[in-house]
Design a binder for these strands. Structure first.
Lengths: 211, 211
DNA sequence: TCGTGTGAATCACTTCACAGCT
DNA sequence: AGCTGTGAAGTGATTCACACGA
């Protein structure tokens, strides 16, 4: 089913278009042109048209795209819009913040389990969830049907935690630890590297002084 | 000075190499080959050599690269290794977490100011910093010599906050709000989009079911 | 006439392959 | 013999430009 070959770059823009489309739709706007959609998504019109063409031909020449229709079609491609529950491992500052961030719930990725190894933290209740120990991970994943893992541990612990997640059957992992982890090919790991983002900004800031 | 044309993709990998090199150096390792460095950074040897070649020719044929030397050279390119202080706007869950995250301090991006608009939050002290009101931003930037801005507000407030940051003289912004903001060309904005990361994972998870 | 859909052209990044230094 | 440095080839993404339908 839907075996379109969506380039990674287009994929990440589609999620941005979708959010923009939901906003448009909520304010009663029925159709939108590639130029308008580009404008509010920080893209450009060719890219928008090319990206949307991967989904099929859902636009009308001379008119534009129906917002409702596009939202539905993008939703189908992005994973059928069934919610995908996530477990979060590593209850430090960042872990606590993410576990309370409503945005994930709203986007269809509810956090349904919390895990740590620190005995001082295990047993604590955050946002209605009790923090479990790492050795209860497999059971937790089974009980909650979680399919996503979020790693917010220190760098040193990340590889072990990822191994446990994979062992427990998780195949999609978002890694906030500033380290590259090894996994088998069937597992998809995405890294969010805050220190790198800062350094890139720092680089451009530095460059600006020599123009 | 140093007007090399570093591709964006190489730039982000250099930050990863540097962290790996610091670890190697700390454990007493003096030289490293492109293959070894690739292994621990999740890259490959051609990419490592090409990336490092943008800095100049600091390797020794038949031997590899001196860890200390590379750390220094990457540091120079990434912005002279002077610390770049940052102000953070938006003291919600994520803002609180980031303001306590030691990683930034360590990487040379200390958070030196906190800002919000909620009167209940303004005046609060977090990690030794008192939260200021948005209208004190310009003064805060002036007093602290901040050069980076971090936006952790809700989407709806992000554009206004970014305008204030730019007004206050900030030219490099890291935006965690799930919205694309408009800025003049001289300002660099990088977006960290957590919802998009989840959706991309969700897409691959979905795909796996139809192989 | 307006805006989509798409081949073709361009640009950017990656990988290959090997000459040359140690 | 081993490993770097780098042109050249290959791959993938972006932009262009225009035919076509509403």
């Amino acid at each position: 089913m839907s075996n379109l070959n969506l380039p990674e770059a287009a994929l990440s823009r589609l999620t941005v278009y979708q959010r923009a489309l939901v906003e448009l739709s909520d304010s009663g706007i029925k159709t939108v042109s590639s130029r308008e959609l580009a404008e509010i998504s920080g893209s450009n019109e060719s890219k928008v048209r090319k990206d949307l063409s991967y989904l099929g031909s859902y636009g009308t020449r001379g008119v534009g795209y129906e917002t409702e229709r596009l939202i539905k079609e993008i939703g189908v491609v992005l994973g059928g819009s069934q919610p995908k529950p996530a477990v979060l491992v590593g209850i430090g500052n960042l872990g606590r913040a993410l576990s309370q961030y409503e945005g994930f719930q709203v986007s269809g990725f509810p956090i349904v389990g919390l895990v740590d190894i620190d005995p001082d933290v295990v047993g604590e209740t955050i946002n209605g969830l009790t923090v479990k120990n790492l050795d209860q991970l497999e059971e937790l994943v089974f009980q909650t049907s979680a399919v996503l893992g979020i790693v917010t541990t220190p760098a040193i612990a990340a590889q072990e935690v990822v191994d446990c997640l994979v062992e427990a059957g998780i195949r999609s992992i978002l890694n906030f630890a500033p380290v590259v982890v090894d996994v088998v090919d069937e597992v998809e790991v995405r890294r969010v590297d805050l220190a790198t983002e800062f350094q890139i900004l720092g680089y451009y800031d530095h460059l600006r002084k020599f123009d």
